[in-house]
Design a protein around this nucleic acid. Structure first.
Length: 935
RNA sequence: GCCCGGAUGGUGGAAUUGGUAGACACGUCAGACUUAAAAUCUGAUGACCGUAAGGUCGUGCGGGUUCAAUUCCCGCUCCGGGUACCA
């Protein structure tokens, strides 16, 4: 009987669905396993072959773990708020919810036909009010929390208020910005003088107005409002990301972009900086992802050093951050970021014009562009500072290589020991103080950590590791500076000027934000999805009566960013229909951390950092009992497309086959890959493809076919090389697609999508189906058992190390070897093989399982154990090498010892022939592996 | 610039801890079956020399360590990804 995958797959999908085979409940009897996939955004284009790659891998593991007796949670849902649906809404007026619904339906159908073991009863959608109700709830929790630096965890805001009312802000250390008080509206605090420096008493606090207290608390909340500079595009009425801005213009439309300060919601992720680093030690992720996160958080230990201004700027103090306080004596200039607030204080009258011009040109560049700039540029301000140790005057420059947002926005330049500073000094002919023994730093920069210092006062003779603590002591002793830890990580902007996102559960009364915690604030109806004419977000179009909930003077009209809903979705899957809690504690205690997360590495510094932050926060708030969301993660590689080309003879409608293209002057054109099979063009189909090709003629190859050229490049519609899984499922079936995507190569490597090899995998499934159909209820032979048990051993080991591709090979080898046997195949021997197959080709596995009388469904069968007795063979084939080169092979009993082997080998005629009279110097024997004779 | 990956036959890849390089599959070639085609099955297939036996070369390039290197070390080239000139 032919392998009828269409009937088989339809049938078993129906069986699983009617039996709810993949629905899962907590169970005390079984250990749990949580397999999670990246949260898909349902775009209009549908699923393409890159998507299922990760889903198949996690499905294989989920099914494998189920065979091993685990209670497996493997859910799927949709990150359904997002820009494309909103843009479609702007263009057509159709509510984004409708577009989203349509796309989700398509995605779900596509995923269902691939036969994933998803528990669809747990599907969640971030745009569903029953879901974002809880996103709002978590936001509310963050709004009403602060971070206690001493206890190193988040705490309820009420504790902070309580402490303020008893002790003011003495003896309490909440995470906040440096000099947080500087941004306060001082008119709210009439009794604080000009010298207010951030400390207040209980009496102060208790006498403050509500507005005043709110203004102070805002600096300590984990979700807070702050002024933040954004790329504002007045034309589009929206804020743009850095990479949406090119040369000061919006990428889309080319409109001018300006910096604008906006009052935005922020997340105090910086409070978690250290824990985001230390937590990495507890997870099983690749080192490169961990390293990227560490670099993103960017913890560096160093010192802040105070430089006083000289002459006209003598009332100024410039605070710099340095990781190399040991090189303090090598400072010969200072560089401020062009945006640094003290720039005017150091600028002399004659330099003013040049300085202003430089500031303007720097401000036009995005941060990215400034960082990528290779040429050295900068301007001397004219003013100088005093070196804190030597008292020398140090000139002050501005340059775009110093960023305002990092450290203090000012550096002390040490040209002798820093590459950039050295180049800068060379460029501007600034003196390079000689501070390293044995190095001529006027010729080249010294980057040797072992170099000993000179001309450095009490630090002379010390190398970096010893000099740093000595320098720190020196600075702290005289109050010239202090130890400091600096982070690159910045607080995350949490407001978006969009419609299709979670509304904030916030209303304003006298401009004080108030939390709405008793009801869900769902999206209001609006007449259009565009910003208002005065640049307010789309939600500002809603009148009071358009809001399902309206309180106070006005509602918050920003919405939350995409990462809000996706930062905690893995928790909602545990308890998706709970209307009283975001996730019941007993459920999150049962399912716990995600045991395997499969997804791309592109989320490293976004989603993966934010979910870790929220998880830690929820753990601090005692909502869940773990503070790292994803225990183990695998990052799948990118799938590239294989494009096909036809060669049009220039100026004609004639197309020449690949082999003969060089005989003509041709244009290479992309051709739709659906018209090509194994690089052979469907000539008729090609003529019908485009009206312009209807009269095409062809110069064919000698075999009468048209061969196309090919190239591997990015999968894209415009290159006609996009493969959706639908066509492949239609043509070969879901099981073939599943096996093939795994067979392609290592999951983590990016690789071309090339369907040429798919027939081999399809053949394998056909062979296995025939093999099992032809088996009978006889006693298994030893040879059969050996083949099957070797497969069990190999497949199990490969799955445990996530080597998905070699599992398919191992099964192919087993099937080929079983086919080669000339004894009848037995049901008993084949059953374990079907279980091994079932994670990869679950439909076919069910079919053949039922055929040879397996009990129940194969998906519930017990994973077989390899019997070691069948794995070892009595004989070992030894490759015998001479000086490392294999010359002949010898079969010897496996049990033979090294001296016995040596005796036999040396007696062998071939050995004598190889040695050709030379003396044997050494014989290396690795029992069970190899023999090497040196001579 | 910096950081992280990667490079193995015509193609995708295998070689798990330094131990037979090229498993498995595609493609190609030859053969069987067939009136023919498809499907299926069998065999060959890294390059070079050789009728063969056999030999030489061969895992991006150049060195090194080792009895033995795709694997470890040093230096480089190219490709991909990330990025923040991070003080």
């Amino acid at each position: 009987m032919e392998y009828d995958f269409r009937r088989i797959e339809k049938h078993w999908q129906k069986v699983w669905s009617t039996q709810n085979s993949y629905n899962v409940e907590e169970s005390a009897e079984k250990p749990k396993f949580y397999a999670l996939d990246m949260f898909p955004y349902p775009s209009g284009a549908g699923l393409h072959v890159g998507h299922p790659l990760g889903y198949i891998a996690s499905d294989v593991i989920a099914r494998y773990k189920r065979h091993c007796g685990f209670n497996v949670l493997h859910p799927m849902g949709f990150d359904s708020f997002g820009l494309p649906a909103e843009q479609y809404a702007i263009a057509t007026g159709q509510h984004p919810a409708i577009t989203t619904e349509t796309n989700i339906t398509r995605y779900r159908e596509q995923m269902k036909q691939i036969g994933f073991a998803f528990d669809w009863s747990r599907e969640v959608r971030t745009s569903d009010p029953s879901y974002y109700k809880w996103t709002q709830w978590i936001f509310g929790k963050l709004f009403e929390s602060w971070y206690d630096v001493e206890a190193d965890r988040a705490k309820p805001l009420s504790e902070l208020e309580n402490s303020f009312s008893k002790n003011g802000n003495f003896s309490i250390n909440p995470a906040c910005e440096d000099e947080w008080w500087k941004g306060l509206e001082m008119s709210l605090f009439p009794h604080f003088g000009e010298n207010f420096s951030g400390t207040f008493t209980a009496t102060d606090w208790n006498s403050m107005s509500k507005q005043a207290r709110n203004a102070i608390l805002m600096h300590f909340r984990l979700a807070y409002l702050a002024n933040s500079e954004v790329n504002w595009c007045p034309e589009l009425g929206t804020v743009l990301a850095n990479d949406e801005v090119k040369d000061g213009l919006s990428e889309r439309g080319g409109h001018p972009v300006e910096k604008k300060t906006m009052r935005q919601w922020m997340m105090r992720i910086t409070a978690y900086a250290d824990r985001l680093i230390s937590g990495l030690d507890e997870v099983n992720w690749t080192d490169s992802i961990k390293e990227a996160q560490r670099n993103w958080v960017g913890r560096s230990e160093g010192a802040s050093v105070k430089f006083s201004g000289s002459s006209s700027a003598s009332n100024c103090v410039v605070d710099v951050f340095t990781t190399r306080p040991d090189t303090l004596y090598g400072v010969s200039f200072m560089v401020l970021a062009p945006e640094h607030k003290l720039v005017p204080n150091f600028t002399s009258n004659e330099n003013e014009a040049a300085v202003n011009e430089y500031i303007l040109s720097a401000s036009r560049k995005s941060e990215r562009e400034r960082q990528g700039e290779k040429t050295i540029s900068g301007v001397a301000l004219g003013g100088s500072v005093i070196h804190p140790l030597t008292g020398r005057e140090i000139p002050v420059y501005i340059s775009e290589y110093v960023l305002a947002g990092y450290g203090t926005g000012a550096i002390m330049a040490v040209p002798a020991g820093d590459e950039r500073d050295w180049k800068f000094a060379q460029h501007f002919s600034i003196e390079i103080p000689d501070i390293f023994e044995g190095y001529d730093t006027n010729k080249a920069v010294c980057l040797d950590d072992k170099a000993k210092l000179k001309n450095s006062g009490s630090l002379d003779g010390l190398e970096k590791s010893a000099a740093i603590p000595a320098a720190l002591n020196l600075l702290e002793k005289d109050g010239l500076g202090e130890r400091r830890i600096n982070y690159r990580l910045r607080d995350a902007v949490f407001s978006r000027q969009r419609y299709w996102g979670e509304p904030f559960p916030i209303y304003y009364e006298n401009d004080i934000p108030n939390l709405i915690s008793d009801v869900t604030v769902s999206l209001p109806t609006v007449d259009a999805y565009l910003p208002t004419t005065d640049g307010e977000p789309p939600l500002a179009r809603a009148n009071r009566e358009d809001w399902p909930v309206f309180r106070g003077d006005r509602m918050e009209t920003n919405t939350m960013p995409g990462w809000a809903g996706s930062s905690w979705y893995f928790l909602r899957y545990m308890d998706p229909h709970n209307n009283n809690e975001f996730c019941a504690r007993e459920k999150s205690d049962y399912w716990g951390q995600v045991d395997l997360y499969v997804g791309g590495a592109e989320h490293t510094t976004g989603h993966l950092l934010y979910s870790r932050f929220w998880t830690k926060f929820l753990c601090d708030s005692d909502q869940i009992s773990f503070d790292e969301p994803f225990k183990t993660m695998i990052n799948q590689g990118m799938i590239l497309g294989r494009s096909n080309f036809v060669y049009r003879i220039q100026g004609t409608e004639k197309f020449v086959t690949f082999e003969k293209r060089k005989d003509f002057k041709t244009q290479r054109l992309h051709v739709d890959i659906t018209l090509v099979e194994n690089d052979k063009l469907d000539v008729e189909g090609f003529c019908k493809w485009r009206t312009e090709y209807s009269n095409a003629e062809f110069v064919l190859g000698d075999d009468g076919t048209y061969t196309c050229g090919y190239e591997v490049e990015k999968m894209s519609k415009s290159k006609y090389n996009v493969q959706t899984p639908d066509e492949l499922v239609e043509k070969y079936g879901a099981d073939t697609l599943r096996c093939y995507e795994m067979f392609l190569g290592p999951l983590t490597q990016s690789k071309p999508w090339d369907t040429q090899g798919i027939s081999g995998v399809h053949n394998f499934l056909r062979k296995i189906s025939r093999l099992i159909e032809s088996s009978s209820d006889v006693e298994p032979t030893k040879a059969e058992l050996r083949i099957v048990h070797q497969a069990i051993d190999k497949v199990t080991a490969d799955l445990n190390r996530h080597a998905f591709n070699t599992v398919v090979s191992a099964l192919m080898i087993a099937v080929n070897e079983l086919n080669d046997l000339d004894t009848p195949r037995s049901h008993q021997a084949l059953r374990p093989l079907i279980t091994l197959l079932s994670p990869y080709a679950p439909h076919l596995a069910e079919e053949v399982w039922a055929l040879i009388g397996g009990e129940g469904l194969v998906i519930d069968s017990v994973w077989p154990k390899a019997n070691p007795a069948y794995l070892v063979s009595d004989d070992t084939i030894y490759p015998v090498s001479f000086n490392g080169k294999v010359r002949f092979k010898l079969t010897l009993p496996t049990s033979m010892t090294a001296p016995e082997i040596e005796e036999i080998i040396l007696a062998d005629d071939r050995t004598k022939k190889q040695m050709n009279g030379r003396e044997i110097r050494k014989v290396i024997i690795v029992p069970g592996r190899i023999v090497n004779i040196v001579g």
